[in-house]
Design a protein around this nucleic acid. Sequence first.
DNA 1: TATCAGTTTAGAACGATTCTAATGTATTGA
DNA 2: TCAATACATTAGAATCGTTCTAAACTGATA
Lengths: 130, 130
Amino acid sequence: MKDIKHFLRQKSLRPTKQRVIIANYLFDGVNKHVTAETLSNELLKMKAGISLATIYNTLHDFYEKGLLKKLMINSERIYFDTNTEHHHHFYSKKDQKLIDINVDMKVSGLPKPPKNKKINKIEVLVHLDN
Amino acid sequence: MKDIKHFLRQKSLRPTKQRVIIANYLFDGVNKHVTAETLSNELLKMKAGISLATIYNTLHDFYEKGLLKKLMINSERIYFDTNTEHHHHFYSKKDQKLIDINVDMKVSGLPKPPKNKKINKIEVLVHLDN
DNA sequence: TATCAGTTTAGAACGATTCTAATGTATTGA
DNA sequence: TCAATACATTAGAATCGTTCTAAACTGATA
Ligand SMILES: [Mn+2]
Ligand SMILES: [Mn+2]
Ligand SMILES: [Zn+2]
Ligand SMILES: [Zn+2]
């Protein structure tokens, strides 16, 4: 609580009531993949009625400060990942769930990128069946 | 023209004027990545004023028949790929462009999938910088 | 404590996609 | 050949996740 406020201030984010609640939930030590909707549902469960606008604002503010990573997995919603290290994912479309792959994976046989283009990062998405 | 009609009939798709125009454009031998919007623009260039509703219907009909693959690259739009073989992509966010990677790539160091889950397919997306 | 920049919020706006229901057309079989 | 009909096209409305707006509120600072 006290240290979450400090943590937010360090990132030049005012520790408002809403941001403290959201940061406490997101950065509790367990990596999470949330959407605005799943986060809103979690907050409602813990009786924190925070408006959707604030949830979107806060996710983007945290993203801007490097506290979250954005994942573009499908065209239906944006996922935010509390694991900001470079890593890969298992994805179950059926469960709409992502699972981190933190081990080192190597992609071999990659062709040269097109002229004047540089590789930024390689993302591996492992689709699960069931 | 004649053989596109035949091609559509083989897939149980009535060769209507609009479907023939769209199929001729998409399956001209050059693999393409289109969105409803980019396809609409191309059709306008060739003076074919086909309604957006028909473009969406046709893309989905072709997808249902296995003539197109759907790519979920970002949360802004759905891409359809005329290359229906399993393959990977370079992606330039700046250009909003996809480039096929058709060579065999291998991903090593992949961990076991979670209990009761089976790997369906592995997708590698190589993000380009500029 | 007063000030004020930054924040929250409800609700409107937006944009990609899907739906609706009226109109049009490819197919077919008499 | 040509109606009958099943399927396709279309404009515009609806939907839904997300962003914007502008008014009310609040944390930081002096
Ligand atoms: Mn989730
Ligand atoms: Mn394209
Ligand atoms: Zn992750
Ligand atoms: Zn492709």
